[in-house]
């Protein structure tokens, strides 16, 4: 729309004191996203948590800047209470306190956050890829292929996510976070598949697809080069929301003892480990909880901002 206005009357706009700038789809989306204040705040918080979790205690053999380890025990300082204080601001030796055997709890929480984030990202990626492919193929080919794929999706939806995730978590929980993330991703793809199938069903009837088919474009190319880019909004938004759900799902499983297993740790596993310590050492309970909420909330806000940016119909234009 902006393009045509720009092409038709380049001077008259300038004469009236209005300049019309041509923007690409990506630029418009970016502009709308950055105008969404909650989404921007979510993005900043999420970025901070990400940087904090991965640089502080180090990752994959690279040492971090935090001098305490999440494994070795130390002498209890101040009965293990958090030394973090805001006024006067001081971090102290153990900002998040220590657990019952003197392990620095900041390091432990950071390690847990790392593991939870890895699981969440893997779940998001696996669920998106599987769901997108299933939905795309079902929506494009229709007929028998669609019937079979959608029945499989129905079967998956019949099983409550937590139930199948728990069953798989029991088997893969102690194998480490990577296998756990992948199998959990295999449990939550149906939502994405259903959404994308709907998109494909309507897009495959559009003229540009007919044109592509008329010049003999192979089906695979139509699916992945012609239609899929048009569904990028739906994909990005539901991938974000799937990641937010994955954080909660992983922590719930670990809390039930069916996800990440000790000695490895995750935010849910930390809460599970110290749930009985709530009355004596509440901070062991607070910190991982706050991090779960911060991660899930910021990702949810990013998702909301992306939805508004890709599909502004529901939102009133902000003055």
């Amino acid at each position: 729309m902006t393009l045509s206005a720009d092409a038709q009357a380049p001077d008259s706009g300038a004469e009236q004191g209005m300049t019309i700038v041509a923007r690409t789809q990506a630029q418009m989306v970016r502009r709308r996203f950055f105008r969404h204040r909650a989404a921007l705040a979510g993005m900043i918080v999420f970025g901070l948590v990400l940087v904090l979790a991965f640089t502080s205690v180090g990752f994959a053999g690279i040492p971090g800047w935090w001098d305490q380890s999440y494994i070795t025990t130390g002498a209890l300082v101040n009965q293990g209470k958090p030394t973090l204080s805001l006024a006067p601001f001081t971090i102290g030796e153990h900002p998040f306190g220590q657990d019952d055997i003197g392990v620095d709890y900041f390091a432990k929480t950071m390690r847990g956050a790392q593991q939870s984030l890895i699981v969440a990202f893997l779940v998001g990626i696996v669920a998106t890829v599987v769901g997108a492919v299933v939905g795309a193929v079902a929506g494009y080919y229709r007929g028998r292929v669609e019937a079979v794929l959608m029945r499989v999706t129905d079967v998956m939806i019949t099983i409550p996510v937590l139930v199948i995730a728990a069953v798989l978590g029991r088997r893969f929980g102690d194998a480490g976070v990577v296998p756990l993330g992948i199998v959990l991703g295999l449990t939550i793809w149906p939502t994405m598949a259903r959404l994308l199938r709907g998109e494909f069903l309507s897009l495959r009837e559009k003229e540009f697809v007919e044109a592509a088919r008329a010049i003999g474009t192979p089906a695979r190319r139509i699916i992945f080069r012609h239609i899929l880019p048009n569904t990028i909004g739906v994909i990005v938004v539901s991938a974000t929301l799937a990641t937010a759900n994955a954080v909660l799902l992983e922590s719930a499983l670990s809390f039930l003892g069916l996800g990440v297993q000790a000695p490895d740790t995750s935010l849910g596993q930390l809460i599970q480990e110290y749930r009985t310590a709530f009355s004596t050492r509440p901070w062991l309970f607070w910190w991982p909880g706050i991090f779960i909420i911060a991660i899930a909330l910021s990702i949810n806000f990013i998702g909301d901002g992306l939805r508004d940016a890709f599909d502004p119909r529901q939102t009133r234009v902000r003055a």
Binding site: A244, I271, I293, A296
Partner: peptide, 9 residues
């Protein structure tokens, strides 16, 4: 907020 709260917590 409700969407982001871990139930067990």
């Amino acid at each position: 907020i409700c969407f982001s709260l871990p139930l067990f917590w």
